[in-house]
Amino acid sequence: MKPLARLLAAAALLTPATAHAQLWQTPQTTAAQAILKDYAAQGNVLKRGETTVTLDVAGNAVVGVFIEAGTVADLARGIGVGWGLTEAELPKLQANLAAPRVLTAAKKGVIELTDDGATDLIALKSTGDGAQTRFSAYVAVKVWPDSAFPATRNVMGSAAAPDTLRIFSDFQCPYCKQMWDRSAKAWEAAPEAYRTYHYQFPLTMHRNAFAAAEASECASAQGQFWPYANALFAAYEQWTPLEPKDIPATLTTYAKAAGLDPATFTACLSSHAFKSSIDAQIKAGIAVGVQGTPTVYLNGVKLQNYSDAAELARVHAATTATPSAAALIDARLKLFR
């Protein structure tokens, strides 16, 4: 999170969960907030005097809130709609919006991520001076483009599938094994519905995770990533407690069992042929807000709970609607650049 967004989020006592949850509400729920009681609704547009709050809706979910206001107080209220704030929480947000550095940034136009998990964003802009000043703001979910994710050979599912899943995982992470044994099996069984990309994100706290990631990439070089990944998770209890010095031999044993050429595999593993690739995947993961494993993105949206069918359905509806969440948000953000 950049300094301006951090200042505003702190003023509103905002957490990633509260901002994210509010933005995914239905337009009816968002419009019914108490801080909008004096606003007149015309569809997804709410007006009071010279202030307009427009709800950008995709798949019957609010994915963005666009505010046009003539005062900082009205600007704060509009942002509060996107963040689900109460009347009592607005004064502090208003005070921070009036800070000189915020007002200076707004004159140039600014777009920043709202939280360190990179789930939401805020944009601000002002025009005019003195009594003629007009403010615009936009609070929206963050939809990452395909270009934000690194290249990987580790892909399964139809290229024509409507949903793209991108998984950042760690072979020594117990929660990743849980995901692999449950949700990932369901996604694999539905290749026409899901195209799944696997990315390496070995955590430093797991001493054998990086070696396992390298081994899986060596298996991938022989066209056997998914079978080898299955073998690693199936043998999770056996290899994860081992001393690092004993790991290469064990990983080679799994390669032989999976039908890989052992000499080629061993040479790949001992030369650390894929270290730079794994490092690049970790770096890219951090850039899109990965903070732990597993982290799953559906059509560019970071999921709060990848096993929640309702969340997957909601994100699917918003990202595949016409216009899509990404199209609506990108069009709004052009106003702030």
Rank of each mutant, 00 (worst) to 15 (best):
T52C: 01
E87N: 07
T322G: 04
P91A: 05
A258E: 15
D163W: 06
P241Q: 02
T133S: 05
K107R: 14
L13S: 15
A273L: 15
L36H: 07
G223I: 10
Q33R: 08
Q25A: 13
C173W: 06
D115Y: 05
W83P: 00
Y175F: 14
Y199Q: 06
A235D: 13
T264H: 13
A189T: 09
E87V: 09
P191I: 06
S126D: 07
A189C: 10
I278M: 11
A309Y: 13
Q172A: 15
L97I: 05
P241S: 02
F201C: 05
A184P: 00
H316M: 04
A215G: 06
K142N: 08
A118T: 01
I167T: 04
A309R: 14
Q33K: 08
R48T: 06
G128N: 10
R134G: 05
L90F: 07
G84Y: 01
C173K: 04
A17E: 14
Y199F: 15
A267Y: 10
A280Q: 14
Q224G: 03
T252S: 13
W239M: 03
K107M: 07
A159F: 04
V53E: 04
L269G: 05
G70R: 11
A280L: 09
E217C: 09
L303E: 07
G78N: 01
A215H: 09
P91L: 05
T54H: 07
L93V: 12
E50L: 09
V63S: 00
H198W: 15
A34K: 09
